[in-house]
Design a protein around this nucleic acid. Sequence first.
DNA 1: CGGAATCCTGTATGATACTG
DNA 2: CAGTATCATACAGGATTCCG
Lengths: 126, 126
Amino acid sequence: MVANTVDVLNDRCPSRQVIALIADKWSILVLYALSREGTLRYGQLQRTVRGISQKMLTQTLRELERNGLVSRMVYEVVPPQVEYELTDLGKSLRRVLSELCGWAQGNLEQVARARELYDLEKGNPT
Amino acid sequence: MVANTVDVLNDRCPSRQVIALIADKWSILVLYALSREGTLRYGQLQRTVRGISQKMLTQTLRELERNGLVSRMVYEVVPPQVEYELTDLGKSLRRVLSELCGWAQGNLEQVARARELYDLEKGNPT
DNA sequence: CGGAATCCTGTATGATACTG
DNA sequence: CAGTATCATACAGGATTCCG
């Protein structure tokens, strides 16, 4: 009894919050960057995840840190140096991350074609 | 030369759009529901993905259909009947989806603990 | 049943400027 | 370098109502 208590499809299940944490464009990209590159400084991260604003990078990193996916190491030097890397928990996401991003990279053409076809058939003749 | 042309970390790469398509709370949950249950009618889908509003369900389904991940079958009966299911392209996402949701379900406690600890150490004494 | 249309408010996010 | 603070706005998304 009370089987399947944990289910992302249940809106009262805490796993929903975890999904919401990951189901975010910037979170995925930041995690993926750290997954690929290992340890990165703030500036490197911003240059790696192209197009992310300073605000979103900081905000995303804080949230990831808060949820235990990313660790933040501050070196008291001048000029300041701060390094980010995946925690063990974050590293356990690596496989999912690389598969997800790999899927996106491998199927962009199919998606693009589907979109063109859809927009052609339905209205949207912009 | 011109290696690595396709890269989600590059903001000018079309794969970014694909990431943005999937990196959405409702998209992930709808896809996951269809992945688990197979074919679902609109109403079933709304009951399965707990907490989703009519507006977001419709909007999400349209976007997924437009991008070729979900197919929409309309049966001209009365009352109306509309069925949704994953396309082949959508089905190729199944593994990623189940791993992602599985990860969320399996690590919600670790995430919750990390969050408590963080909020305790830093301010946020709400 | 399966939506579409409208209204309305909160939040997300970019741009900009400043700081230890 | 690695942020924080502020502003201004667009858009996300819920609630409600109506329709074939």
